[in-house]
């Protein structure tokens, strides 16, 4: 086990932190959503990279009739993370759609999509 054998996790963490930083440091709501998407994709990459086997191939059986004598000596990557991530991508686009709809409503109500301006309007309304 060498140190470089974990580079896939480090790439994932780098991307994840870029998305995280975008989310918590920018006041613009659209930019926050883009950051959230980057974060999501980094999690997808984490799962897919865990499913990869060196020298393996895509998990589609070579013999269409499924005879195990033909398929036994082919190395396939793990199909399970792929299935989970397919579900996660679709759920991710659903959350993105709801978030963008919320942003559109916020723009209509407050006339701004900047976080601090909205806070200011809220404070003025309360005072």
């Amino acid at each position: 086990m060498t140190l470089l054998s974990h580079y896939n996790y480090w790439v994932v963490i780098l991307l994840m932190m870029v998305g995280f930083y975008t989310m918590i440091s920018r006041g613009n709501l659209i930019k926050k959503m883009v950051g959230l998407n980057v974060f999501q994709t980094s999690v997808f990459m984490l799962y897919i990279s865990m499913g990869k086997i060196r020298g393996g191939t895509a998990p589609i059986l070579m013999d269409a009739h499924g005879e195990s004598s033909e398929t036994a000596h082919v190395l396939y990557s793990n199909p399970l993370p792929h299935v989970l991530i397919l579900t996660a991508i679709v759920v991710g686009i659903a959350t993105t759609a709801v978030g963008l709809a919320l942003i559109v409503r916020i723009k209509e109500t407050y006339g701004s999509i900047e976080e601090d301006e909205i806070n200011q309007i809220e404070a003025e309304g309360a005072a």
Binding site: F44, G51, I85, I93, I113
Partner: peptide, 29 residues
């Protein structure tokens, strides 16, 4: 990384639909 199904879902949904959704939201805000 051998995940062909995930790749074409990401290309269609992530690069396609999500960009269209963002552009639609930008047109409004």
């Amino acid at each position: 990384m051998d995940a062909v199904d995930v790749a074409f879902t990401e290309a269609a949904v992530g690069a396609g639909i999500s960009t269209v959704l963002f552009l639609g939201a930008l047109a409004l805000v």
